[in-house]
Design a protein around this nucleic acid. Structure first.
Lengths: 207, 207
DNA sequence: GACATATGTCACCAATCGGTGATATATGGT
DNA sequence: ACCATATATCACCGATTGGTGACATATGTC
């Protein structure tokens, strides 16, 4: 409230403050309380500028979505080394993917908030983000797994594991124990990773 | 608005109307818009009665939670026949459990809404519901699976599958395709069930 | 320096929110 | 029949919401 007045009259800076405010507010409080007034307050900017520059809150959120990298890039899911990753056996590729996926998701609270948001309030923004994510997932899948035309439904397997891990990571924010699994400790997550490893080792047929 | 006035002065009936209003409102709009005013409006009852009879909205929601059966009962997860279920091989028990779990969750939109709610807004109600569910899950697990002291982490496996299925069912409300999996058709769900079957058949060691 | 415009501030609106006090009326015991 | 009380309605409160128009001031152009 003290340093609120920043009449630098720099539209770019103001827009950036608004976009950043969406991010920090979303990370701080989740999607609840993500209103025009709250965003403007957080940015220290008058809310009328949201209407002027972004044509309303949805427009601002869309701008926010455009400049952020919510979904972990393929490179990160592959362990930052595409070449060596693609040379691994399919089993190990899947195991690594699971571990990388957990780590990538854990360090993106914003992504978790948005994924939770998608589940309760489908809207234009979440639809857009879903489209991007769906595309990213499919690209990743086709890049590393589609050529292994095994007799098992590899796609369904990967998505099942991905769904489980997504759910568990999101739940770990507000839940300590899930069905006896401790989601707060590394040991608990090690159990999860281990069972994923076990699954892929037993299920995936070698090439 | 027409038949709003029901001055029957029957406290039980009024309380029931309020409790039912929470349910229908939750199923209709999800947890958004679940406020004092909205609930009272839905019930066709003055909101002051919520304070009088339930000491506020949390109290009303708690009463609502107490009388509903959100979580599928163990009997249902076991396929309505405990005896024959417990005589199945562990593998088949797990496969049946997965199929029953999907069906049970699919036909409980209220449960889905609450599960989604738990992910974004932890509060007293969701905590309570989580406690009940956690207890139910563990009971189910100990009843049917704990005696099979295999070398694999059966608990982690079950919870992983449960997490995946929960996520996919909830997502199917607002998403058609997840990573190439069609969540709108029986064929898509058949793929999911099949891969679960494959996993348990390959991973679970026979007794 | 004058002026159009871009940028930002402020005041206000109607609607809704959670919450409370005052009041009316039906119920049930004496 | 009378009266205490349980039940329900209504009117209001301050705060907050999304949204808009009027106004002020800095910026850049001529």
């Amino acid at each position: 409230m003290a340093v609120k007045k920043l009449p630098f009259r720099d539209r770019q800076v103001t827009c950036q403050r608004l976009i950043s405010a969406v991010g920090s507010l979303l990370a701080k409080k989740g999607f609840t309380g993500l209103g025009i007034n709250a965003v403007a307050r957080e940015a220290g900017v008058d809310k009328v500028l949201i209407y002027r520059y972004f044509d309303g809150l949805p427009g601002l959120i869309a701008a926010f979505a455009r400049q952020e990298d919510f979904w972990p890039p393929i490179l990160e899911l592959a362990g930052n080394d595409l070449a060596s990753f693609s040379q691994l056996p399919v089993k190990d590729r899947l195991s690594r993917f699971a571990a990388n996926f957990i780590r990538a998701l854990k360090k993106r609270p914003l992504t978790q908030a948005i994924m939770a948001w998608e589940m309760v309030e489908p809207n234009e923004l979440t639809k857009e983000l879903e489209r991007v994510r769906e595309e990213s997932i499919l690209t990743f899948f086709q890049m590393f797994f589609v050529k292994d035309s095994s007799d098992i439904d590899l796609q369904a397997l990967i998505m099942l594991v991905g769904a489980a891990l997504s759910y568990l990571v999101i739940r770990s924010n507000s839940l300590d124990v899930y069905g006896g699994l401790d989601l707060t400790t590394d040991q608990g997550w090690q159990r999860i990773e281990s069972v994923v490893n076990l699954i892929v080792q037993q299920v995936v047929t070698p090439e």
